[in-house]
């Protein structure tokens, strides 16, 4: 049984890694076409992506601005919503949280079309700031969940003790709640960041060809066939994801964030 389990997991990991590995290896191609195994291996595609080709450099800058901006905004909106659910436990605050998580739960193409109409009316279509807001709304569900998990783990005896000793709610919030919530807030921030970095369809409708992020740029070039420079983008994105999630696992309790039983080790 043990052998079967390990074999099955290894096979699954192999299938998962296979297309990613192929994309990464293609970045080494010397020629213009995407071949596997790579021919005439070289690292010039990396220089092209990060330094020489303005199309890719601009796309990367846009991706970074939107990812960081939207993740920060998502955390800022999610905090009071999650805090409201935890503090009040009323039906209204739960409804508010449910509405906030709705865009993430429904097919993203529908939300993208709707946002396209909305920004069209308000004049935001094709601007970076509307892209930032759109992704913040789409991925707000993630910090909402991590912050709620964190708030539930706060020991209520501490809050009672603080209240007994005469701490005002503001002091309690600053000295007890906030410090314990840092890892959960950061996890939520990074989940939103990485998903925003990789999101395609909503950004596609919202950008309206006014600007391009890396994923949009790759899709635009898809018609002309893949080039090895795109594979460099893929490698960059995978590395960012692995580093971010490793950091979350290192500094926070990843199994607990993913819903494992907190009492069992």
């Amino acid at each position: 049984m043990k052998i079967f389990a390990h074999g099955f997991m290894a096979l699954a990991a192999f299938v998962i890694v296979l297309p990613i590995l192929v994309v990464c290896a293609s970045a080494l191609n010397g020629g213009r076409s995407m071949l596997f195994p790579p021919q005439d291996p070289t690292l010039t595609r990396f220089a092209e992506f990060f330094l020489h080709e303005p199309v890719w450099r601009n796309a990367l800058v846009n991706s970074v601005i939107i990812a960081f901006g939207s993740a920060a905004l998502a955390v800022l909106i999610a905090w009071p919503v999650a805090y409201g659910v935890w503090k009040r436990r009323s039906a209204a605050s739960k409804l508010l949280a449910g509405l906030g998580a709705m865009p993430f739960a429904l097919p993203p193409i529908v939300f993208g079309v709707g946002l396209g109409f909305m920004w069209g009316f308000s004049g935001g279509l094709g601007n970076i700031w509307s892209g930032v807001i759109s992704h913040a709304v789409l991925f707000m569900a993630l910090p909402l969940v991590t912050i709620s998990i964190g708030l539930q783990s706060i020991d209520e005896a501490h809050l009672d003790a603080a209240a007994t000793m005469g701490a005002t709610p503001a002091t309690t919030f600053r000295t007890i709640i906030l410090p314990q919530m840092v890892p959960y807030t950061l996890s939520g921030f990074f989940f939103a960041l990485v998903l925003s970095f990789n999101e395609f369809i909503v950004m596609f409708f919202v950008s309206a060809s006014g600007y391009a992020t890396v994923t949009l740029q790759i899709f635009n070039s898809l018609r002309n066939g893949f080039t090895p420079t795109m594979a460099v983008a893929a490698i960059t994105f995978i590395l960012v994801s692995v580093i971010v999630f490793s950091a979350v696992a290192r500094f926070g309790d990843l199994p607990r964030l993913m819903g494992a039983d907190p009492s069992r080790k």
């Binding site: 990991a13 998962i16 296979l18 297309p19 990613i20 192929v22 994309v23 293609s26 995407m34 596997f36 990485v194 998903l195 970095f197 990789n198 999101e199 395609f200 369809i201 994923t215 790759i218 899709f219 898809l222 893949f226 795109m230 594979a231 983008a233 893929a234 994105f237 995978i238 994801s241 692995v242 999630f245 490793s246 979350v248 696992a249 990843l254 199994p255 993913m258 494992a260 080790k265």
Partner: peptide, 29 residues
Amino acid sequence: RAAQSRWLVFLLATLSLSEVFIVMGWDIL
């Protein structure tokens, strides 16, 4: 728990990978 953590990092990294990259990989394959 530690092994689960490592698998979760691996899964989350592939989960967040953009659809365009995944299509690119399978397209080559």
